[in-house]
Simulated assay, not measured.
Amino acid sequence: MSIEEQIILITGASGFVATQVVRLFLQRGYRVRGTVRSEQTAEKVRSIFPEYKEKLSFAIVQDIAQPGAFDEAVKGVQGIIHTASPFQFRVEDNERDLLQPAIRGTRSLLEATQHHAPQVKRVVLTSSFAAINHLRKGYWPEHTYTEADWNPDTYEEARTADGPTAYCASKTLAEKAAWEFVETEKPNFTLATICPPMIYGPVEQPVASMDRLNESAADVYRFMNGSLTEIPATGFPAWVDVRDVAEAHLRAYEAEQAAANERFFVVAGNFFYDEVCEVLRGVEGVDKAKVPVGKTQERPKVYGVSNEKVRSRLGMEFYSLEASIRDTAESLLKLEKKLKQ
């Protein structure tokens, strides 16, 4: 089947990462069916891609954690990219708001694919560095993270943990659930998981207000809007650009070794917040007086990150931190202006 005939299901199509994934698959020539929670959201996503209206369709999935949530959405598609999973640190109930949606949503999609879409040969799942990172080890400067590492937090620990710990556990347990499904059910499809750390880059998804930004865009915006007077410690000093994350999804889907089950740590390198602020001060339109100033010599020693596998297996190259933060800032300024109109 040619690329132009293939329909790719992309879950959570209105998300920060998913918007870029949708764009890339459409540009490549695929037809895309996105899952969204409502027809209103579908309209917002459609408005981002007016030139692809003939190739972009939607399936409404109101709650990904519900049994059978994806049964209809998967029918007739040739490939699946699963990006839908909650990314938030401030929740009322870890189990209800993070753990169950992430784990059940993943399991529900794989079950639907197995039972209702036997033609699907490849599923790519958006996981996270959260599923790799050992939070209790902190900066762990003597260690270099690779695909072989796993976050050791358990479901029981995550139920009562702080927000970041529970979020990281939700990504870990969802990815583990996917691998367990593949191992026990032996479905027709192979699985690739994409594990990015902090994701920066242009904001192109639908955004209702500047206080409703995705977590990583908000992470940059707080250095631009005067809400910080000092540069805080860099909590997760590893990053990648959203366009590279999207590229990794496409390459993992199309890879020659797509017959294999693979895990990919998609990371550009280490970074620190003072570097982010340095770039922001050079972006036209950013009020330099609002960008906090800090001492660069106070950077701590931190863990290493290896992107050797994605470079060698997927042929990936990466945006520079400067380009990524500049493009993030410019997109935020543009969004700010648009929302004020």
Rank of each mutant, 00 (worst) to 15 (best):
A178G: 08
D274H: 14
T328Q: 04
F189K: 06
H249N: 00
S57K: 02
K334M: 12
T234A: 07
E142L: 13
E183L: 00
R136V: 08
K334R: 15
A166L: 08
E215W: 00
K137G: 01
K186V: 05
A252Y: 09
T234C: 12
Y167N: 08
L135C: 01
S227G: 06
R326S: 15
T165I: 07
P292F: 08
P197F: 00
Q257G: 04
S38M: 00
A148W: 02
T229R: 14
V293N: 07
Y155N: 01
A13Y: 05
F70V: 07
K337C: 10
A174G: 00
E183K: 13
Q20P: 05
F70Y: 15
D71N: 15
K334T: 14
E5P: 08
V276L: 10
A174S: 06
V207I: 14
P164E: 01
E180N: 11
A169H: 09
S128D: 09
V240W: 01
G79K: 03
A130S: 14
K340F: 10
E322H: 13
R326C: 08
P141V: 14
I8A: 04
S14W: 04
T296A: 15
V293K: 13
D241K: 06
D241W: 11
L135W: 09
G12V: 06
F181T: 01
K295G: 12
Y273C: 05
Q6C: 12
K295W: 10
K309M: 12
P101W: 12
E215N: 02
R281L: 06
L9A: 00
Q66N: 13
N214I: 09
V293G: 00
H143F: 04
A13P: 11
D241H: 11
V302D: 00
V32R: 02
F89C: 09
Y319F: 14
A258I: 05
V291D: 09
R251W: 03
N270K: 03
S57M: 05
G79M: 10
H249C: 00
R159S: 03
S170V: 10
T41Q: 14
M1V: 11
S38E: 02
G105W: 13
A69T: 05
S14T: 05
Q205D: 06
R28E: 14
Q78D: 04
R33G: 01
V293M: 07
E336M: 04
K137C: 03
S312L: 06
G269I: 12
K137R: 13
W179P: 04
T83P: 07
Y167A: 05
E175A: 02
R222T: 13
S2T: 11
F181A: 01
N133F: 14
T229P: 01
G235D: 01
G282Q: 15
P206E: 06
E175W: 07
Q341A: 12
A69D: 06
S209D: 12
F271C: 12
F265C: 11
A329R: 09
M1K: 10
P86H: 10
F272N: 06
W150Y: 03
S47G: 10
A69E: 11
E275M: 06
F265D: 11
Y139T: 02
L314N: 01
M210V: 09
T146F: 13
S306L: 04
L335E: 13
E204R: 09
S2V: 02
P101R: 03
L24K: 07
T113M: 04
G15E: 07
E180G: 01
L24D: 02
Y155W: 15
N225C: 07
Q62P: 11
Q297L: 03
